[in-house]
């Protein structure tokens, strides 16, 4: 371990080569990293392939907050979570992929919940615009009176 590095710190290297110095307790919130550390196959620099610096920074921010705030009120953390996941869909999906790949359960749950919130109580029309982003359906289905028991196959 390099002398300049404080004890219990790890270096995470993103897919685009940027390095982050992170306390071990924070890094091991990722099960994947935890396993590496436990199996002692982690040198002082842990590569995090498939996750770029931008996304890795977000994941670390989330883990840090959750590590610090163990003593904090749960409601504060909830507010943080809901603000944290409130992002554009692209970032959201990249984060989900990263959280899944690095196995950060709390983050993954918060993110999936957030996407689900975009569906809850929304009309089919709204969901299509939100996730499919085109309106072709509207033309095709303008005369289509949808009913939950109308068992129509689209295929």
């Amino acid at each position: 371990m390099s002398s300049s590095l404080e004890k219990n710190m790890l270096i995470l290297r993103s897919s685009d080569g940027e390095e982050f110095i992170v306390p071990e307790v924070v890094a091991v919130m990722s099960k994947a990293i935890k396993n590496m550390v436990e199996d002692e196959c982690a040198s002082n620099t842990i590569p995090v392939p498939n996750v770029d610096a931008n996304i890795l920074a977000m994941v670390i921010e989330f883990c840090k907050k959750h590590d610090e705030s163990e003593a904090e009120a749960a409601s504060d953390l909830k507010t943080f979570d809901s603000e944290f996941v409130n992002r554009g869909q692209e970032a959201l999906y990249d984060l989900i992929t990263a959280a899944n790949f690095r196995d950060v359960k709390e983050l993954l749950d918060a993110l999936c919940q957030n996407v689900a919130e975009m569906i809850k109580g929304k009309s089919v029309h709204h969901i299509r615009i939100q996730f499919l982003g085109y309106q072709l359906f509207e033309i095709l289905t303008s005369n289509f009176i949808w009913n939950i028991w109308c068992d129509r196959d689209f295929d």
């Binding site: 869909q89 989900i96 615009i129 996730f131 499919l132």
Partner: peptide
Amino acid sequence: MEGCGDFLQW
């Protein structure tokens, strides 16, 4: 929020 991706594909 602006919509974009179909998560099933992404």
